[in-house]
Design a protein around this nucleic acid. Structure first.
Lengths: 195, 195
DNA sequence: CGAAATATGACGATCGGTCTATATATTATG
DNA sequence: CATAATATATAGACCGATCGTCATATTTCG
């Protein structure tokens, strides 16, 4: 039964942080929603709230990374991979009534100390995502340098699109930005292959 | 002396929210840093914390809007305007030791109720910024529809770039995304004028 | 002066995260 | 099988922080 409690706490924490931000969620919130007893927290997470948050964020990041890998792997052209990942993100948004966006952004903006483990995990996530796009773009024929820049652009655009989508309560923005990026990727690849 | 206290409270609130997020800043924080006494808060802001936060965010938005207008107005080509605004954003980031990014994003992600005045102000800010870019792009020759899409892409990219810059503690990302967008704008305008 | 506007910090009910003491389950041992 | 020893899980006390209120100063100005 222990694994259940622990898992539920992580899941609930992840959901609540996405909804209200890192500092917007209290232990009581987490305990109420997950139905876990208060005392169990420091048994499962001796590091306290920060340890719990770290695991919750890691879970969210891993899930996102898994989906991104899948989208890129199943696509013939990176442009299609990007679009299908953006579509998946849009789906999460609507399914969660615009609560779930990027698992990293709320942590970065709620300002963990620059030295914290949380901050490191955030940066690592961005790096990994950029690398995945970059590799896909290189495979499609782009030069490493150009691929790196485009990859960065893709990650930044998605981050922004997710925030705007939440504000607008519409996934329009995600779709549009995805299309725009796809077009940019296609012409970039063409230019290289053509020249 | 009243205006001074009030203004200092707003300024401090804006700064702290940027640093730690909406829920990460307490009244005591604001009062300590602004040097204002506790009781004054509810005299100047009968609406309590939310009223203060609303004004603080509005101040941040107005400032950003002012600078954006200036950048676009002083530039011959919208691409140059975008680049100079991104450069201004990068400057704010380094000057504040990576604390100051977008005044809107931390509010959106800390989840005000979807009905709140805060949420409305966030959406209004995004809309205004997109409109400014859009008009500039239309003036440069783009068709309204295309201009709208590009404008959205620009806002999204900047939002994302600001978050990534904070995480990386480097403004590289802002510069790179700015350059990428400038190139995209230039070719878009050329395509229309050429065709 | 006297009245209205503004400033002040102490107060209390509630909530925050942490920790120690206790209970329950599991396994080891005679 | 009985009991001791250990691992797992829980309960709730603890104390500082938080936010809004209020009774009282202080200033402003007719």
């Amino acid at each position: 039964m222990s694994r259940d409690t622990r898992a539920r706490m992580i899941e609930t924490t992840a959901r609540l942080i996405q909804t209200r931000g890192l500092h917007g969620v209290s232990l009581s919130d987490i305990l109420n929603e997950s139905g876990a007893p208060r005392g169990s927290l420091y048994f499962h997470f001796p590091g306290g709230k920060e340890a719990l948050v770290l695991e919750a964020m890691r879970a969210g990041i891993d899930e996102a990374t898994r989906i991104l890998r899948e989208c890129l792997a199943n696509a013939k052209h990176p442009a299609a991979g990007v679009q299908s990942f953006f579509q998946a993100a849009a789906g999460e948004m609507t399914d969660s009534n615009y609560a779930f966006g990027c698992p990293v952004a709320p942590i970065v903006l709620d300002g963990p100390g620059a030295d914290s483990e949380l901050a490191d995990a955030c940066q690592a996530a961005f790096d990994e995502w950029m690398d995945l796009y970059r590799e896909a773009l290189i495979k499609a024929g782009l030069k490493p340098k150009r691929a790196g820049r485009l990859a960065r652009m893709i990650v930044a655009s998605l981050e922004g699109a997710l925030i705007m989508a939440r504000s607008e309560r519409s996934t329009n923005c995600i779709t549009q930005v995805g299309d725009e990026l796809a077009a940019l990727i296609i012409t970039s690849v063409k230019n290289v292959k053509g020249g």
